[in-house]
Structures are given as C-alpha cells and as structure tokens.
Nucleic acid binder design. Structure first.
Length: 752
RNA sequence: GGGCGAGUGGUGGAAUGGUAGACACGCACGCCUCAAAAGCGUGUGAUCAUAAGAUCAUGAGAGUUCGAAUCUCUCUUCGCCCACCA
C-alpha cells in the first residue's frame, strides 16, 4: 500500500472534527454494563492550557481509552473551577468583569482541550460560577447550617483597622495593608466555619486503608488531622490540655495564649498591654518565622493540683489560642519548648517522676481546625443567609435559591465586602418576621465549590437536588482520581468530608468518593527549574503541538518519565517520539498477508501483555518503551503481517488516538473507529520460547549464559552439566562446587 | 524541628532479591548526497588492553544472603509537604 507523508496536524484536525460531529465520546449510562469513572481534577480557567494540564489529562485519557477498549463504559467528564481570587485580581488589573474574563478563558481553554484529542464528554460538565451550579452550593450550605455543620464563629485573622476588613496573606506587604498602608493586626473576626472537626475521626485513614490512595496522602492527611489523646487538668480555674499528665509534678509554670479568656479578665500592667499589642501585630507568617520565645508574666499564680505548690502564669504566643484550651502546663524538664522559655525567663526547671496521676477529664484533640469558608470577596458563591436584627441568622428558603451574584457591582477593593455596597441586592425583608434585614455579603471559599463537583458531573442538569441520587449510586464512587500532590491536605480532604456529610444526609451510601487516587508529578522547564514567566523557561504546549502534532506531545508526556515523577522537559527528546510515529506511519507500506513466525508472535503477545498491564497500573512510560521495542523488531522485517500491524495500532491507540485512527481506517476502509475495538488479548502459549537463556554465575558473579531447551528447564542435573561444559565457567570451577543454587529458568550459581 | 520520597551513564529513565543501564535523547563514525538537512546503519558506563578479555561500577560506609540498585543499620545530599499542636 503506497502511503503519503505523515502530516500530523492534518490527520489530527480531521479526526477531531469527525469525533466531535459524530459525538463519538458521549457517555450513555447503561446499568447492564460495568462502568468506569475516570476523573481528573477540574482546571482553574486561568487563560491558557499549559503543559501541566496536558500532563494531568493525557496519561489519564490513555488510561480511560484503554479501559473503554477493555469493555468498560467509561465516564470521563470535565469542567471548570471558575470562581476565585485570580479572576477578580485579573479583572481589576485589566478592567474586565470577572465573569467575562472567566467565560472567555473557558472558551479558549475548551478549544485548546479539543487539540488534545481526549475522550472527555463535555455534556457532563460543571462550571462552578454559573447559578445552575452554585445554587447547589447554597443548598448544601443550608443543609450544613441546619445540621450545625456551618456556623458563625470567631478566628484570628489579618485585619486592617483603617479599611475595617480582613486581608488575605498575599495582600499584606511588609506588615502593612496593600491598599492604605496601615499596619495590619491580628484580630478575632466573626466568620463562617464548617465543622470539619466533627468528622475528624471518620476522616482518619484506617490501617489497612479503605481505598487505594497513595501512602503519602494517607499519612499526610492523618498527620494533618493529628489526633492526640490527652487529659484536661484544672489549675485553679485555668484548664490545660496535656498528652503527658504523668509529668505534672514537673509543671513549674503555666503559659496561656495572648487571646485566652484569662488574659481578657486580667488587670493589665503597662508591660502586659505592650506585649499583647506586639503579639497582635505579628501576622500568622511572622509568628511562624520568629521562633524565639517571647512572653510576659501575668502577675498571677495558680496551684499545681498534684504538688500543691503555687506556680506563676505567663502569657506567650508560642501557645496557640486555637489548639487545646489555649493554655498549657509547662514542664521544662521534659519539653524542649518549655525549657527554652524557662531558660529565657529564668523560671524553675523541676525534675518529673513521670509517674504522677492527676485527676482530669479524658479529652481527644485534633490538630485539624474547623474550616473557615468566608471570603470578603465578590467572585464567589453568595452565602444564602439573611441577617435580621430581630431573628438573627435566617436561612434563605430553598424555593428562593439560587441567590444570584449580581453582575453590576463595584468589585474593586474598598474596605468592605463588595456585595455590601450593592444596596439593592443587600436589603431584603426577613423571611421570618418580614422586617428589614440584610443579606450576608460574604462569599464562599472556592474549595467549597470543588469539594463536590464530581457528583454534579453525573447529572449536570438535575434540578431537584445537587445530584441525581439514583444515578450517583450507579456511577459513583470514582474509580480513579487523577490530580496533583498539592491537594493532599486541602481539596481531597474536603471532598472526603463532603462525602461523609452526604452520607449522613442519606444522599450516598459509600464512605469514600474515590476508590483510587493517582498523583502526577511536575514537568520542569528545560533548565531544570519550575516553569515561570519570570525565568523565561515556559514551554507552551500549543507551540509544540504546532511543531510535532498532538499525538507526539501525548506520547512524549507518557514516555518521558513515570507519571508521579518530577523532571525537566526535553526539547530534543521529543523528536525521537515524532520519529517513532513517522516510522509507524511509513510501515503501512510493507503491510501484507505475510506469514508470521513463532518469534514474531512471541514478541507480539509479550507486548500485548506488557502494555495492558502497564496501562492498568498507570505505568505509561514503560508501556510506550515496550511498543518501541516491538516497532524496532517490525522495522527489521521485510514484510509485516496485517495481524501484527493492526494489533500494534490497537495497543498504540490509547496514547496516540489520531494517527492510529487514520492508519486503522486505511487498513480497514469499512471499519468503524479503532477506539471502539476490543483490546487485544494475549495468549500464554506464545509467551513461551523454545530455548531459554540461563545465566551461570560463580559466587554470585556472572560468568556465562547457556541456552537450554524449554523441556529441560526443570532438570537441574542437565543444566548443571551444560553449565560446567562452558569453557568460561570451567576456568573458574577447578574443584567440585560446595553448593549449587538453581533458580528455574533464570540463573544457576556455583558456590566454591 | 517533624513527615514522606528520592540519589543508577553526558541526559530522561529501565530493572524492587537472580544476566545493572531496557527504551529514548545526546554524542561519534559510516552510508546516501555536489553539499547540507532528513533518513538509514554501527558504536557508546568507567579503567586497562591492538585484541580476546579483565577489573571496577547504582550517593558513602557497614550488615544480612549462594547472590543486593533492590532488604536492614549508620551517615550524607537533594526534592516535596507540614511546622511552636502541649
């Protein structure tokens, strides 16, 4: 068959259009078929697809395509995490409305996704900034409010006293507000929280883990939840939490956090006032960075309940208000931090017997804190709560959802939440008493949006609940969830939390939303550094696609390193992949009905086995290299049989969907898509070779290899005899070996 | 300070107790060409040797084993995440 030259872009554009028009990848649920939910973290619409997106989606697409060819009804949706601060900042900078900026980016990225050639079904999508999506954010929030999971609480935040507003860490420059330049302080601010700590215990991974998640994630989350069992001990009115009650006889002083109730009730000296002010000026970052201990004596003493001695109470910010009771008993003899503090302020260090048994209530504490979800920002989901002077916090009624985010709002920063400046939107009647009331002007953290989006994908148009319970029970949980390791402690933990909450609501029946989690690594710039505009080492995937085509980029991304690794992009190595695809293309010319030999079949079936196993286990790089080995073998032959070539195309199809489709149709003009073909099945009988090479070693050192007949493989005497015949071996074997170890079909070792 | 992971040719990486360096890039030489590019072929861990071959070699050191890149211990370097959590 005479073949034209390989023009990747032509072939790719052609098939992308055909697949789109024929709706080739539309998911149709069928309860009779086994389903496979293949999920990739939804991208943020930052403007353009970068290589990181390609690396997240391409190997997972290869996996999905392999699953489809293996007989699964594969569900591969995608959407956009469209709310959030970057849209607002970019919009302020460029004078475009965040919504317009976001929707334009989505459009751009959506068409860039088309050039990737994935089997994503875009009918099942979610754009979190659309009312049809965030309506259900609000619905979930109201359920959480009803169950006491969403509540108003106080937490220390960065506070600008002039602007009267909370500031994000990135909006503080050298301790000063980015807008007005006044000094930022730490203030207890009222805000919305989700009581994730109520689920702390059920979020802890068991041993063995209940789902196939990376060890790194499981241990990371368990450490983050940080369960610690201890005791609450009362020191004459000040309650402390300790995990080491047996050391109480060495407790020579108490330390309370500056924000502790005890301090608030204290008659303060000038020295104390000064310390409190200084502590309040330290931002969270500074408290973390400044490791030297500071503090001030409160002037008060309390009795140690075990020794009966009076111990001084100190105030210091190395004790955290938000953990335990905000007060500790200091045992400088046993604790390094207490010791440092005692030495600095010349406090007594008393030996402990480690045998004391103080009275106290058992208490379990978690490092995990409740999740603060309020954002004093415009571009997010409005909190569906009405503040009424008479009735307090009144939930919006379900029939009034969604509370839409008004479009014409001055979202430039000016000291209060942008929504609070839209009087028309803000002022409402209280649903309870009918009196004047105001809407909550805050918006939800975008991690709220992304905590449940994969449920919405299942039934994106469903209008009675966040998702269709019946359909979710058939399609969920997710079979494999691809994403980045940066979401170990945030997003994936929140997603697990939402799932447990949904279970309590009776919406789902499973405990974990994803059976398996696969975390990809990072592609560095060619110089070995993280890609960044300022370094000028950013590789733009569009440029590479233009040069080599999408199939080459896809194959190279799968081949360049293990999926979880972090390595630099090589602008030269990708040319080898292009060459590989061109050889596959040109090979069509020598495809005919030629005979295949045992040797050919053996390698073919070995490759079928290897590529299938590797795609199953997400080891894409070695799958590609085994295809290269087979191609090298085929290239050396004068003729290639149709069977070999078609099998090769099928194995390559998940990685390079366009070129394989084109070549498939050229060999089978009447055939339907290669991506609807069945995955080849290997036959064990072809994996076995007639002759087997066995390594011969002496004292573990390789000396020779011998070839033996398969029939003799179990016959150790025969193999020993053959091995001894080898001249090289005989040179070393001048006496009878002390011991002979034979590993069937692999190695024979003589010990002398 | 804590947790997790990793250290293999010039480079990306294979091999998770049994022939180290698969596959690919790069490089060298050759073929083709007026020439170049492309393509094809051969070689390519190090050292010694004309060669056959030998010796050494998976961050360093020790251990277990007939046999260790792989398991154990000590040290070391790097990466990621967390970090005053009582």
């Amino acid at each position: 068959m005479k073949q034209a030259k390989y023009f990747a872009r032509e072939v790719e554009a052609k098939w992308q259009e055909i697949w789109n028009k024929s709706k080739a990848y539309e998911f149709k649920h069928d309860s009779k078929k086994k389903k496979y939910y293949n999920l990739v973290e939804l991208p943020y619409p930052s403007g353009d697809l970068h290589l990181g997106h390609w690396f997240a989606f391409v190997p997972s697409d290869a996996h999905a395509r392999y699953k489809k060819m293996s007989g699964y009804n594969v569900f591969f949706p995608n959407g956009f995490d469209a709310f959030g601060l970057p849209a607002e900042n970019a919009a302020i900078k460029r004078g475009i409305h965040p919504k317009d900026w976001t929707m334009k980016n989505i459009e751009t990225m959506r068409s860039q996704f088309d050039t990737m050639g994935t089997m994503i079904d875009w009918n099942h999508t979610a754009i979190t900034s659309l009312p049809e999506y965030y309506k259900w954010n609000q619905w979930i929030f109201l359920k959480m409010f009803e169950k006491g999971i969403a509540y108003r609480g106080k937490a220390l935040s960065n506070w600008c006293p002039i602007d009267q507003t909370v500031l994000a860490n990135e909006h503080i420059e050298a301790g000063k507000c980015w807008r007005c330049g006044s000094e930022v302080i730490q203030k207890e601010v009222e805000q919305w929280f989700l009581a994730i700590t109520k689920y702390a215990d059920s979020l802890i991974w068991k041993n063995p883990p209940q789902a196939d998640w990376p060890k790194q994630v499981i241990e990371g989350q368990n450490n983050w939840i940080g369960k610690s069992e201890g005791v609450l001990i009362d020191f004459a009115g000040i309650e402390v939490f300790t995990t080491r009650p047996e050391t109480i006889d060495g407790a020579s002083f108490l330390v309370v956090a500056p924000e502790h109730q005890f301090v608030k009730n204290l008659v303060k000296t000038k020295e104390i006032e000064e310390y409190l002010l200084a502590a309040s000026k330290k931002t969270e970052m500074e408290r973390k960075e400044d490791r030297t201990k500071s503090g001030v004596f409160s002037g008060k003493y309390v009795k140690n309940p075990v020794t009966g001695k009076d111990v001084p109470v100190w105030i210091s910010d190395y004790v955290l208000a938000g953990y335990g009771t905000g007060a500790i008993m200091a045992v400088p003899f046993a604790d390094a931090r207490d010791k440092e503090f005692a030495q600095k302020f010349d406090l007594p260090i008393i030996e402990t017997s480690f045998a004391a048994t103080p009275k106290g209530e058992k208490k379990i504490n978690y490092h995990l804190r409740d999740w603060s979800i309020s954002r004093q920002r415009y571009w997010g989901t409005p909190v569906p709560i009405i503040h009424c002077d008479k009735c307090g916090l009144v939930p919006v009624e379900e029939k009034d959802l969604p509370i839409e985010l008004p479009y014409n709002v001055d979202y430039t920063p000016k000291g209060k939440p942008p929504l609070a400046s839209d009087e028309d939107w803000l002022n409402v009647k209280c649903p309870k008493c009918g009196g004047d009331a105001k809407r909550d002007a805050e918006t939800l953290d975008t991690f709220f949006d992304s905590a449940w989006y994969y449920y919405r994908y299942v039934s994106p148009k469903f209008d009675k609940a966040p998702f269709d319970k019946e359909l979710v029970s058939e399609i969920m949980p997710v079979d494999v969830y691809f994403g980045g390791s940066e979401h170990t402690l945030g997003h994936t933990l929140y997603a697990r939390f939402f799932t447990k909450f949904f279970k309590d609501l009776g919406l789902v029946s499973f405990d974990e939303f994803a059976k398996k989690r696969a975390q990809h690594g990072v592609i560095l710039g060619p110089d070995g550094n993280r890609m960044s505009k300022s370094r000028g080492n950013v590789v733009n995937p569009d440029d590479v696609v233009r040069e080599y085509g999408s199939d080459t980029v896809r194959l190279y991304l799968c081949f360049m390193m293990p999926y979880e690794a972090t390595s630099p992009w090589s602008p030269t190595a990708i040319s080898g992949i292009y060459k590989f695809l061109r050889r596959v293309w040109d090979m069509l010319e020598k495809v005919n009905d030629s005979k295949v030999f045992q040797e050919d079949l053996s390698l073919m079936h070995q490759t079928i086995k290897k590529v299938g196993e590797d795609l199953e286990m997400l080891q894409f790089n070695t799958a590609v290299s085994s295809l290269m080995i087979w191609l090298n073998h085929l290239s050396a032959k004068e003729e290639v049989s149709k069977e070999e070539y078609e099998t090769f195309l099928k194995l390559l199809a998940p990685f390079a969907p366009h070129i394989t489709e084109e070549l498939w149709q050229l060999t089978n003009p009447s055939a339907s898509s290669i991506h609807l073909e069945n995955w080849p099945v290997f036959q064990s009988k072809y994996l076995i070779n007639e002759n087997i090479n066995i390594a011969v070693s002496i004292n573990g050192k390789l000396r020779d290899t011998i070839s033996v007949k398969r029939a003799d493989i179990k016959n150790q005497e025969e193999i020993e005899r053959k091995a001894k015949q080898s001249e090289k071996v005989a040179n070393y074997l001048n006496s009878e070996p002390k011991k002979v170890i034979y590993v069937e079909g692999k190695i024979i070792n003589f010990v002398i």
